Simulated scan of single mutants.
Amino acid sequence: MKYVDEFRRGDIARGMAAHIRTLVQPGRQYRLMEFCGGHTHAIARYGLTGLLPENIRLIHGPGCPVCVLPIGRVDSAIELALRPDVILCSYGDTLRVPASNKMSLYQARAKGADVRMVYSTKDALQIARDNPHKQVVFFAIGFETTTPPTALALLQARQEKLANFSVFCNHVLTPPAMRHLLAAGDAVELDGFIGPSHVSTVIGSAPYAAVATEFAKPVVIAGFEPLDVLQAVAMLVEQINAGRTEVETQFSRAVTLQGNDKARERVAQTMTLRDSFEWRGLGQVPHSALAIHPDFAEFDAELRFTLPYRHVADHKACECAAILRGQKQPQDCKVFGIVCTPDNPLGSCMVSSEGACAAHYHYGRFVQGATA
Results as ranks from 00 to 15, higher is better:
residue 183 A to K: 04
residue 183 A to Y: 09
residue 184 A to F: 11
residue 185 G to R: 01
residue 187 A to C: 09
residue 188 V to L: 05
residue 190 L to M: 02
residue 191 D to E: 05
residue 195 G to F: 04
residue 195 G to W: 05
residue 197 S to N: 02
residue 198 H to V: 03
residue 201 T to M: 03
residue 202 V to H: 01
residue 202 V to Y: 04
residue 204 G to R: 01
residue 205 S to M: 02
residue 205 S to K: 03
residue 206 A to M: 09
residue 206 A to P: 09
residue 206 A to L: 14
residue 207 P to N: 13
residue 208 Y to N: 01
residue 209 A to W: 00
residue 210 A to C: 08
residue 211 V to W: 04
residue 213 T to H: 14
residue 213 T to P: 14
residue 213 T to Y: 13
residue 214 E to T: 09
residue 214 E to Q: 11
residue 214 E to R: 09
residue 215 F to N: 04
residue 216 A to I: 13
residue 216 A to C: 12
residue 216 A to P: 11
residue 217 K to S: 00
residue 218 P to R: 00
residue 221 I to S: 00
residue 222 A to Y: 03
residue 222 A to H: 02
residue 223 G to A: 03
residue 223 G to K: 05
residue 224 F to I: 05
residue 224 F to E: 07
residue 224 F to N: 03
residue 225 E to Q: 06
residue 227 L to T: 04
residue 227 L to P: 01
residue 228 D to A: 04
residue 228 D to F: 00
residue 229 V to R: 02
residue 230 L to T: 08
residue 231 Q to V: 13
residue 231 Q to M: 14
residue 233 V to R: 00
residue 233 V to N: 11
residue 234 A to V: 06
residue 234 A to N: 09
residue 236 L to N: 09
residue 237 V to W: 04
residue 237 V to D: 03
residue 237 V to P: 07
residue 240 I to T: 02
residue 241 N to T: 02
residue 241 N to H: 06
residue 243 G to E: 05
residue 243 G to M: 06
residue 243 G to C: 05
residue 247 V to C: 00
residue 247 V to H: 07
residue 248 E to Y: 10
residue 250 Q to G: 07
residue 251 F to C: 06
residue 251 F to D: 01
residue 252 S to N: 13
residue 253 R to H: 11
residue 253 R to D: 06
residue 253 R to T: 07
residue 255 V to N: 06
residue 255 V to C: 11
residue 256 T to H: 05
residue 256 T to Q: 00
residue 257 L to E: 07
residue 260 N to A: 11
residue 261 D to N: 13
residue 263 A to D: 11
residue 263 A to V: 14
residue 264 R to F: 07
residue 264 R to Y: 10
residue 266 R to F: 13
residue 267 V to T: 08
residue 270 T to E: 11
residue 271 M to K: 08
residue 271 M to V: 10
residue 272 T to I: 14
residue 274 R to H: 14
residue 274 R to P: 04
residue 274 R to D: 10
residue 274 R to T: 13
residue 275 D to E: 15
residue 276 S to L: 14
residue 277 F to V: 10
residue 279 W to A: 05
residue 282 L to S: 07
residue 282 L to W: 11
residue 283 G to Q: 09
residue 284 Q to T: 15
residue 289 A to C: 14
residue 289 A to M: 12
residue 290 L to Y: 12
residue 290 L to M: 12
residue 291 A to E: 10
residue 292 I to Y: 08
residue 292 I to D: 14
residue 296 F to E: 05
residue 297 A to F: 12
residue 298 E to Q: 06
residue 299 F to I: 09
residue 299 F to C: 01
residue 300 D to T: 12
residue 300 D to G: 10
residue 301 A to I: 12
residue 301 A to C: 15
residue 302 E to R: 13
residue 303 L to W: 15
residue 306 T to E: 15
residue 307 L to C: 12
residue 307 L to E: 07
residue 310 R to Q: 14
residue 310 R to L: 14
residue 311 H to Q: 15
residue 312 V to A: 11
residue 312 V to W: 06
residue 312 V to Y: 07
residue 314 D to R: 11
residue 316 K to G: 10
residue 319 E to R: 14
residue 320 C to A: 12
residue 321 A to H: 02
residue 322 A to Y: 12
